[in-house]
Design a protein around this nucleic acid. Sequence first.
DNA 1: GCCGATATTTAGACATAGTCTAACTGCGCC
DNA 2: GGCGCAGTTAGACTATGTCTAAATATCGGC
Lengths: 138, 138
Amino acid sequence: MTRRSGNQALIDRLERADIRPSAQRVAIAGYVLSTADHPSADDVWQRVKVDFPMVSRATVYNTLQLFTEHGLLRQLVLAEGKVVFDPMVEPHHHFVDDETGAIEDIPWSALRVGKVDELEGVDVREYMVVVRGRRRRP
Amino acid sequence: MTRRSGNQALIDRLERADIRPSAQRVAIAGYVLSTADHPSADDVWQRVKVDFPMVSRATVYNTLQLFTEHGLLRQLVLAEGKVVFDPMVEPHHHFVDDETGAIEDIPWSALRVGKVDELEGVDVREYMVVVRGRRRRP
DNA sequence: GCCGATATTTAGACATAGTCTAACTGCGCC
DNA sequence: GGCGCAGTTAGACTATGTCTAAATATCGGC
């Protein structure tokens, strides 16, 4: 049914990425490949454990690493003391809320960055703007 | 002599920042307020311990926090799993070397960021471009 | 269906980074 | 010199990330 066909899409996605779709990996993918929360590894673990109590912390760490290596996730350094994961692998910027710690995506075209190509002595792999401040509340 | 007058400048700087210039704080300031290394707290501790073996880890953490709160340092999230410290408190960008982990300052004017003020629903406190890649070797 | 090989997961030890606090030390004031 | 307060120390504790032996799961051949 819908749940199974939902998993089938994930299974297909993992197989296309050359990843064997074990039940644990599908469960992890089900959350982390569709969230805009930019969770840490332990956030992902806490979340997946709800529906998959036996999943181990090492499996979650290993799986997130695997997804990153296979291009399904990006690993970002935006929060103090931890890395966070982002399923949006295309270039974009980020806003980090000083108050809540929440991380939000900013579309690539919303900001313009000039002269990166003029930086000397470096081969640029990626760049992004990190904006910090506070979300306005109504 | 030169060493003492060097310390006197630091002592003056700390006093101007409303910070009592204990020997430990002067030693920490001597390194962290003049380095371009963007060290972590433990990096600072290892470094200061060379000349000040008794300095404790808690003192270093507390002092870095104090310097940050008093505007002498900036605390940045650029390295995985740790915060780093930067004495250059004026706005600038950063380059992070994928290979070595080294962090380098990029002058504010070297890159241009457009349309930050057009971001909706947020009060921006600061922003910067983070460039990742590799330093070219000759 | 069984077996062997390989992949994956588990459980938990271990390392590093960051925080917290009781006890101790240093400093300035009276 | 004593007192009150600031600062430091030593180390316990928590959070994050890594590693690995042992166990489990999967797959292909027979």
